[in-house]
Amino acid sequence: MSMREWLQRRQIAIYAASVALAVGFGVGLPSAAPLFERVITPVLAVLLYVTFLEIPFTKFRRAFTNARFMAAALGMNFLVVPAVVYALTRFLPQEPAILVGAFMVLLTPCIDYVIAFTDLAGGNAEQVTAATPALLLVQFLLLPVYLWLFMGARVADVIRAGPFIEAFLLLIALPLTLAWLTEVWADGSDTGRRLQDAMGWLPVPMMGATLLVVIASQLPRVEDSIGRIAAVVPVYVVFLIIMPLLGRLAAGLFRMNVGEARAFVFTSVTRNSLVVLPLALALPDGYRLVPAVVVTQTLVELVGMVVLTRAVPLWLLSNDPTSLSAPYA
């Protein structure tokens, strides 16, 4: 068994260990929080670089031409999800920081570990990877619009173009460009090919490192507000239940094959908590709870992924393609 396979099979345990270690730092050594916070962006950039590097760009381009999948993914994430999120957040305390955090994370589809979880569930990882640039670009454009629609004038002083542009350049454009250049190098050089192969085992450790620095940096800031933050947990749980079912239904309507359908379900449910975190950290002091609300979604979602990576292939979308015509069979 290769190192990459060993890590992929144990990734849930690695993530759990990272979370436990982060809590240990946050509680036992809170003075280290500023150090962890300073390395969030570079750690995220490396995570996205090794994530994009996993899929060959020739296949990436072919997958991008799947207009049906792209249309379904965009429609689900930017038409259906906002309606679901707005309805669910009516049950939250109408506190601006809580609402902004919940909206920021739930309105932004995941573009990193969704690939790994799709692969674990036997879905088409290449297809979901191909959709990530479009999903990310559209979410950066629409998130301020949805925040304004859902919260009105309360967010007029919160949304700034600078942090959004900086996050896009550092966390998407740069990693994506470097991944493409690495693959071009690998196509014409043995050294480049060896480097690309060596990078194959990094996504899981980098995801663990990301969880560590994110949680350890935020926990000391919100210890006195755990009760307020906990109010979002039921909403996150219900979202994890509703969206796979809606994704399953939509996949049937779009007549996707099983691999596409599983990928579609995961891109419908997983959220972009780790990438929007730098945006949350850039908010004014009155919104200091927002990063913690965002990180809480990560913790809830990881537990949900343990369930979904098993439930999707075994129950929601079995290996029998005819199951797509019978949602509750």
Rank of each mutant, 00 (worst) to 15 (best):
F239N: 00
G24F: 08
M206D: 08
W180T: 06
M3R: 13
D187P: 00
A186I: 00
A173R: 07
A311F: 14
F239Q: 01
T41Q: 07
V303S: 14
L136K: 00
D320M: 13
R221E: 07
G122H: 07
I55C: 13
G123C: 06
M207Q: 07
A134M: 11
S273K: 01
F25V: 15
A32Y: 06
A33G: 06
M256T: 07
E54Y: 11
A263L: 05
P278V: 04
L174R: 02
F254E: 06
I242A: 11
I40Q: 02
F266Y: 08
L195W: 15
L178Y: 05
S217V: 08
T129C: 10
L48V: 14
V265W: 03
V128G: 01
F60P: 01
A116T: 12
V293L: 00
P313L: 08
W201M: 09
M305T: 05
A179M: 03
V307K: 06
V23A: 15
A71L: 13
S217Q: 06
M76F: 14
S31D: 10
V80S: 04
V213Q: 10
V258I: 05
F52R: 04
S217C: 03
T51R: 01
A22E: 11
A230K: 13
F52D: 04
A250W: 07
F91E: 03
L317M: 14
A250F: 12
A102N: 12
F103Q: 05
V100H: 03
F164A: 09
L249F: 14
T191M: 08
D112V: 00
T309E: 06
L281W: 01
P30W: 14
F52Y: 15
F69Q: 00
W185D: 02
S31R: 04
L274P: 06
R62M: 09
E54A: 15
Y15K: 04
M207L: 15
A186G: 05
V290N: 03
Q11S: 02
I241Y: 04
